[in-house]
Amino acid sequence: MLEKPDPKNLLETARALLLERLLPALPESARLEARMVASAMAIAARGIGAANSAPEPELAAAIRAGALDDDPGLLPRLRERARERLAVSNPRAL
């Protein structure tokens, strides 16, 4: 058993420190990069333990070939996958 706090908790705690304490103390020229670091930490934290479906090369090829043009289940399936990916990359867009 790994020691707690777990990686997700560590990332979230470190990110809060970065945003609340360090960011205001940084010169203006470094703030954009500090915010980028905070974004990366948030994505990484959300990614821990997240669903991660296998790539679907056959699906991509079938869509391109037009084989699924009339498949009513296609769009819901694509949305489900997109939702899964957004939940890590940018849940605010949902």
Binding site: M36, V37, S39, A82, L86, V88, S89, N90, A93
Partner: peptide
């Protein structure tokens, strides 16, 4: 890091 984060814009664009 900027290029790395740009990649994480793809799911929103796909949506």
């Amino acid at each position: 890091l900027e290029l790395a984060l740009t990649g994480h814009m793809v799911p929103e664009l796909e949506w």
